[in-house]
């Protein structure tokens, strides 16, 4: 199944524990998996099952307590973000003092792109998602759905190879959430990027061809296309 496609992220026996002693919480038990280029994966599971922790580990935002996470073709962990990996968070994640175009341009500015080029790239990303008219608005002037779509535009502006979306529809109604997921899928398709999306909504999960399931920190295979076990 992996023939011909690059492995973007590999997890080998990855586990993450928070706290110590009696108060220790194992959020993720030993996970072995690989995400291939261009894959579309939905990670489902109830709240507290470890979905967000897994996403944070895959994005390099967090380090495992045991095992290793590697990015064979994306480079070292320090260069993942902003860069080949983009993250879309659950809650409002735009910077309040910046308008939409400045928010979308921010990841590019962080890697040293010239301001004019970064803003131009931001406008293109907004155009792609039909959000051009929001460019000068402040985050507080947007609806929940608009906020998440702008967050998606921000993720896409850097032309990532891997998009990790942690419950992007968690605070949205069903219709809006579905629209956001469709925008993610469309954008990922345009870029040829892999997409890993966590959700507890089966309808949203059904939009992606591959489904992983997390329960009590363990990854269970459902209708898995890539090899992944725990």
């Amino acid at each position: 199944m992996t023939a011909g496609r690059e492995v973007l992220v590999r997890c080998d026996g990855v586990a993450r524990t928070f706290g110590e002693g009696e108060r220790a919480v194992v959020a993720v038990h030993g996970v072995d998996c690989a995400i291939l280029a261009g894959e579309r994966i939905a990670v489902t599971g109830p709240s507290g099952s470890g979905k967000s922790t897994l996403v944070h580990l895959l994005a390099g935002l967090d380090t495992p307590t045991h095992g290793t996470v590697s990015w064979p073709v994306l480079g070292p962990r320090e260069g993942l973000r902003p860069g080949p990996v983009a993250v879309v968070f659950q809650g409002p994640s735009l910077l309040a003092p910046l308008d939409v175009s400045e928010n979308v341009a921010l990841p590019q500015l962080l890697v040293g792109v010239e301001e004019a080029d970064a803003l131009a790239g931001a406008r293109r990303a907004l155009d792609r998602l039909g959000l051009a008219e929001l460019a000068t608005r402040l985050p507080e002037e947007l609806s929940g759905g608009q906020l998440q779509r702008v967050a998606v535009a921000r993720a896409l502006a850097g032309r990532p190879r891997l998009i990790l979306a942690d419950e992007p529809t968690g605070q949205l109604d069903h219709v809006t959430g579905t629209a956001v997921v469709r925008a993610l899928l469309e954008a990922a398709g345009l870029l040829g990027a892999a997409l890993v999306l966590t959700t507890h909504d089966p309808t949203v999960a059904g939009l992606l061809p591959v489904r992983w399931t997390m329960a009590d920190g363990r990854l269970r295979q459902g209708r898995a296309v890539s090899s992944c076990s725990a």
């Binding site: 902003p82 993250v87 968070f89 994640s93 735009l94 910077l95 921010l106 990841p107 962080l110 921000r154």
Partner: peptide, 12 residues
Amino acid sequence: RTLAIAGALGAR
């Protein structure tokens, strides 16, 4: 929160 988000986006 602003600084945390910027850090999550990859700010050094």
